[in-house]
Nucleic acid binder design. Structure first.
Lengths: 159, 159
DNA sequence: GTAATTTAGTTGATACTTAAACTATTTAAA
DNA sequence: TTTAAATAGTTTAAGTATCAACTAAATTAC
């Protein structure tokens, strides 16, 4: 392959569509992530990974195993251990033992965790709505539909 | 890490469109990022940030300042210092002094850096094309167009 | 022309992340 | 049943990331 290609600026017409798309996707993700991270830090003195983990638990009131958190958040298990440790130390979540399988923890939000998450989630949603405000709902739906198919494809038939 | 359910499972219909869109965007980014990171590690014993930094330099043969790398890669300056240190130690890039402004370094690829990047870039592009293979070109163009507008919006009127 | 401010880059502390090696438990096989 | 294999979670080392505090150099203001 002769023409070496760059990451996001100076892309010419002959550049493959997919590569350009990937770079835009990555750029948009980083921009939004950076915005949300700063806002979470400024307004709630917390971090994005902690917020994400609490969001997972909020949606699973029965609790989630460490491995399930790892799969849902797309990060490795060791990572989950660290974040859970911190949130547990802060009293926002608890590891519950499973009597039927002693290798397993069921992680759940505490009452205080649910309370704090509720106030953060409302703010978080309004930030996101703001950030996407310039994109018409119709287009957002189309984007959503395509990304949904992309995601299905990316998770299919893996090692 | 295994094939994952993803960040956006179990969302109900009443969830706002923008929030759902954001979670899908993030999930797709992470899935592709994870794939590329593993491939870079397995085939070239390198990392995504190092590859990204070299890609920036490949497109700027005149060299880039540390601060310009920071802005383009959407990461903080201290981070750039660390990655540049490593790539320089490996002989793939060099810090060049700018006689007209002694605070500044101009960072450039070495000959060996260009050589290594060329072989990685070709592979990288083929991975990306593969990952997007199931999305029709027409849709990729539409997605690209929307993301381009989103990006413009997200970067407008900032600090 | 000197002082104050801004800009470029680095450093240090802390947190996030991966991969690989590890412990403990459960399941399957012999 | 004893052993082997698989699974759940943790630990460790190294890389990546932020932010805030720092040094050095260039600009601006007076």
């Amino acid at each position: 392959m002769s023409a070496a290609v760059g990451l996001d600026s100076r892309l010419t017409d002959d550049t493959h569509e997919s590569l350009r798309l990937w770079l835009r996707l990555l750029t948009c993700s980083h921009l939004i992530e950076n915005h949300v991270r700063k806002a979470l830090s400024a307004q709630f003195k917390t971090t994005l990974p902690r917020f994400d983990l609490m969001a997972q638990l909020e949606r699973a009131p029965q609790g989630l195993q460490m491995g399930e958190l790892s799969r849902r958040m797309l990060v490795t298990g060791g990572n989950i251990t660290g974040i859970v440790d911190q949130l547990e130390r802060a009293g926002l979540i608890v590891r519950t033992e499973d009597p039927s399988d002693r290798r397993v923890y069921l992680v759940k939000l505490t009452k205080e965790g649910r309370r704090q998450f509720a106030s953060m989630a409302a703010e978080h949603e309004s930030w996101i709505v703001q950030l996407f405000a310039g994109i018409p709902k119709r287009e957002q739906r189309a984007l959503n539909e395509t990304l949904s198919r992309l995601r299905a494809q990316l998770t299919r038939e893996k090692p």
